[in-house]
Amino acid sequence: MIHIEGASRVYRRRGRKAVAAIDQVDLRVERGEFVCVRGPSGSGKSTLLLTIGAMLRPSAGRVEVAGEQVYALGARSRAAFRAEKIGFVFQLFHLLPYLDVRANIAAASGRVGGKARDAAVDELLERVGLAGRADHLPAELSAGECQRVAVARALLHRPVLLLADEPTGNLDPRSSSAVESLFGEYRAQGGTILMVSHDRTPFEGVDRTIHLAEGRVASEPGARDT
């Protein structure tokens, strides 16, 4: 599902030393796997996730996702690739503030509309426990509820790859458990998950954990993390 070779992302600012957020990273994730990337703040976890999600072009290296070299695609094709293949859960949710919960979830399916989409949104609202808050704006929701909306949005178009950046980082235990449950259901349907987390709290269903330090893969124990 994911095949990265020598991926680096270097940030250069005038007058400052260049910083490699990720440095020569090699990574393979198989279809159906649930991989957790851990590491301290600033270790490059989010950069790696964004690079895999076709949202941040690497300075060097090759990034292949779902059989596509995503950065060989044009901007329009890459956008279509994201819309079709990838679901992304941001740590800060990134919900559109002027759309209610239902519209935020539906916003992910720009190319799909009609009754099928509405039914899928309703189903996801039930599964994330927000059916009663479908008409609320993000500002009227708790952090846990926002994150569940973000997860629902990421899952609506049935992506083959779910990328999640600290999906439970801001959540209470109950909300964390709800998110874990959603990931489990997605996984059970054959989905692949790559999740970033900075703490060592175990997450249910993780197949393996990769540790990043200073932009490099420090270790890949391969052990199950549950």
Binding site: R76, A79, A80, I86, L95, L96, G110
Partner: peptide, 16 residues
Amino acid sequence: QSEIGILRALGRDSGH
């Protein structure tokens, strides 16, 4: 601008 980022992340094309 962040909205543009969100919409782009969701796969909306530049024309939209």
